[in-house]
Design a protein around this nucleic acid. Structure first.
Lengths: 203, 203
DNA sequence: GACGGGGCTGAACGTCTGTTCAATACTCTG
DNA sequence: CAGAGTATTGAACAGACGTTCAGCCCCGTC
């Protein structure tokens, strides 16, 4: 076994599957289509990965390894996700929505790391205190991942090319702006929401 | 034609399709499964809607009507989305990811409304000014929709029941908190990002 | 009571699916 | 050079798929 090094057929198949799975979903992708993209026969796909499900698992593991090997640097997971190649992003978005085992684990992991990171920030004074650290971390991560899942929609409205890095950067800057200065100048919406919530919970 | 009033078979089929499409994707759902859920024969599904694609379009229109009829009240689209029933949310999330014609239109529409709403807020003083109003509106909407698409992940980490309203409320409050007070107390991340961006754009 | 039409069905169709299997081509070990 | 083992293939399978069609049933109209 020569592991995963070059453009071995196994790797070509995995990459083709990654792209197809991300673009059209796992259920919407046939083994034959993946094989055609990789330039091999359908039988070879099943030879290398035991089944279609095995192929999906292999994609999961590959994406997870690729992202995790980026290392949790100072900017937390933000950079990891933004730096990931487009097919990987698309695949990850769909895996998160499908509730894939690997994707779910990754999500939980990122939330955990983020919560610790924010706790540190709170102690060091650069992050504001919160009443519900868990909810804040979860929501923050979901925001971070939103342009990943909704990338096509965001890209379409922000500029012609959804794959263009400049587009993603423009959105990310606007996001950081909101998180730094805040979006709302007073707490009218927060109090309004609290009112609606208490009224609604009596239903 | 008695239109759509009660639990007519047509409506039952549409609702069953909505739930299935949302849970397992359009490609992952068979006409036979929808028919079984609705308690009718597969042939009837094709009789009422011309094809599987026609069924998908009918779901699109129904969801859009349901959401739009909520009316754009003062809290913008936030309430509309949160109030939508769980199957509708799930369906909408997947439709947005798939880039459905209807879902894309809805997204653009919400962004437009939100941008105007934020411009008003800017004029009235309760929304902070921004350098890129468009990017801010798009990002804000994608954040609003994030828990919708990632609902399962968020729910799982925030409490046992993803369908529970209390869970969604908890996340929404944490979000509003971040948007009101801001998350970061100083602009270290904003400047850091700018630095990385300028360095990265020279690649 | 005859009749027409739409809701509804069972059975069938051709096609595509994931998967299996025997056989071939290739590559390294002895 | 013989042989073992892996990469790779074409052909075939059974089942599920979307879709079609002829026909039944029920209801309101003349």
């Amino acid at each position: 076994m020569r592991s995963a090094s070059d453009v071995t057929a196994r790797a070509r198949i995995r990459d083709a599957a990654l792209a197809r799975f991300g673009a059209e979903g796992v259920a919407g992708t046939s083994v034959r289509a993946v094989a055609a993209d990789a330039g091999v026969s359908p039988a070879l796909v099943l030879h290398h990965f035991r089944s279609k499900e095995g192929l999906r698992q292999a994609c999961d593991e590959h994406v997870l390894d690729a992202i995790r090997s980026g290392g949790g640097a100072d900017t937390s997971a933000l950079g990891d996700v933004l730096r990931a190649a487009t097919p990987v992003r698309r695949y990850l978005g769909r895996a998160l929505l499908d509730g894939t085992e690997g994707a779910s684990a990754l999500f939980a992991e990122i939330v955990e790391r983020t919560q610790e990171w924010l706790a540190t920030g709170e102690a060091e004074g650069w992050a504001r205190p919160t009443a519900d650290a868990r909810a804040r971390a979860v929501t923050y991560v979901s925001w971070l991942l939103a342009p990943l899942v909704l990338g096509d929609q965001v890209g379409r409205l922000l500029g012609g090319d959804p794959a263009d890095t400049a587009t993603a950067v423009r959105g990310a800057r606007a996001g950081l702006e909101m998180l730094t200065g805040g979006l709302f100048a007073d707490d009218r919406w927060l109090t309004a929401f609290t009112a609606v919530d208490e009224q609604g919970s009596s239903r």
